[in-house]
Design a protein around this nucleic acid. Structure first.
Lengths: 177, 177
DNA sequence: CCTCCGTGATCAAAGCTTTGACTACTTTGT
DNA sequence: ACAAAGTAGTCAAAGCTTTGATCACGGAGG
C-alpha cells in the first residue's frame, strides 16, 4: 500500500490517502472521526490562508490583527481581557498585538475608569476606517467561498458546525486562559 | 444596538452578535457567508487548541510537529518539498521544524539519490513509536468531538466540507509556495 | 484597617510562521 | 556543450504564539 501513487498526492487528496493508510497500520482508529477532523482543519487552513493573503496582507493587516480589530469594531470599546475572550486569543497575545496596532494608529489604550488594573481598547477613527473597508473586501471573499454551496447546504453546514461547537467535547475542551 | 448585553458574550455566542452588529453598520454584507466562515474558524480553532493542549503537548509534540510527523509516517520517506505540500506548510517552515524534530531524534534527513538538491525525510524508529502512540490518543479525542453528531450528520458534514474544498473559490485561492 | 488571595496586564524566553534572499543544483533551449 | 532559467533547501528578519513569571490593584475576612 505504501509509496504507490504517492506522487500525485496534494493537500486535498491527502485526506483519502491518510484514512486508508492509517487503517492498515492501526486498528481501533475511527476513520470517520479522522476524516471529519482532517477535512475541517484543511478547509479552514486553506480558507484562512486565502483570506489573509488575498484580503488582509495587501491592506497592511495580519490575520490576528484583523481579528482584534474586528472584535473591537463590533463589540466596541472593550477591556483587553474581553477582547482576548472574544477573539479566542490569550491575554498575552492581545497585549503584544495591541502594541503593533497602537503603533499603527488603529487602536487606542485607555485606563479603565472602574478598575485601575484594566485597559480599555477602542478603535481610532483611522482604525474604524481601516476595518470597515477591510471587512467589505473580506466579506466579498467569504461570499466567493460560500458560493460553492447551495443556500440549503450553507444552512445545513452552519447548523452542523453549531452543533459541534455546543456539543459535549467542545464544552469539556481545554480553553485558552 | 451596541454595548447591550455585551458582557455575557463569549467566544461561541460572539458569532450571533457579530452578524447582527455588522448588518447594522454595513449594507452589502452577506450574513450567511459571514456566519459560515466565522463558525468554521471558531470550531476549528477550538478543536485544534484542544487537540494540541490535551493530546500533543503533554507528549512532547507541538501541533506543527505532529503534522509533519503524521505526513512522514503515512506517506514517508518523502522529499522535504512534498512534506510541505502535504502538510500545508511552507518549505521554510518545514525546514525549521525538521531542525527541532531531528534534534529530538524523531526524523532523519538524507540526501536524495536522484537530486542532489533535495533532502529525503524519514521517521526514525523512535519517531515511528512516538507518532503511533500519539495518534492513537489523537484519534480518541477526535472521536469525542465526532460523537456530538449522529453518524448521518458526520457524513453530511464531511460531504459539505469536501464540496467547499473542491469548489471554485478553493481552486482560485492563493496557495502556499 | 489590613492581610490574603484572586485577577488584569505585561514581560521574557522559546518556538513556529511568514516573506524574501541566497546557494547549490537541475533542466531547457539554442 | 553551454548559457539561461527554474527549483530545492536553508537562512535571516520580523511578527505572532505559547507558558510562566512579575507587578499592580481589588475584594473579602478577620
Amino acid at each position: 500500500m505504501t509509496a504507490e501513487g504517492t506522487n500525485e498526492l496534494d493537500f486535498l487528496s491527502f485526506v483519502d490517502f491518510a484514512v486508508a493508510a492509517t487503517s492498515s497500520e492501526l486498528q481501533d482508529v475511527d476513520p470517520v472521526a479522522m476524516r471529519l477532523v482532517l477535512s475541517l482543519h484543511r478547509v479552514t487552513s486553506a480558507l484562512v490562508y486565502d483570506l489573509e493573503s488575498a484580503v488582509h496582507r495587501p491592506r497592511g493587516l495580519s490575520w490576528p490583527g484583523f481579528r482584534v480589530l474586528f472584535v473591537v469594531w463590533l463589540a466596541g470599546p472593550l477591556e483587553s481581557k474581553r477582547v482576548a475572550a472574544l477573539s479566542g486569543m490569550s491575554r498575552a497575545a492581545v497585549s503584544a498585538l495591541v502594541n503593533t496596532l497602537e503603533k499603527a494608529g488603529l487602536v487606542s489604550r485607555r485606563p479603565s475608569p472602574h478598575d485601575r488594573r484594566a485597559v480599555v481598547l477602542a478603535l481610532t477613527p483611522e482604525g474604524h476606517e481601516v476595518i470597515t473597508r477591510d471587512y467589505l473586501a473580506h466579506n466579498e471573499r467569504e461570499q466567493a467561498w460560500a458560493d460553492s454551496l447551495t443556500p440549503g447546504e450553507r444552512r445545513t453546514l452552519i447548523g452542523l458546525l453549531d452543533k459541534l461547537m455546543t456539543g459535549r467535547a467542545a464544552r469539556e475542551a481545554n480553553r485558552r486562559t
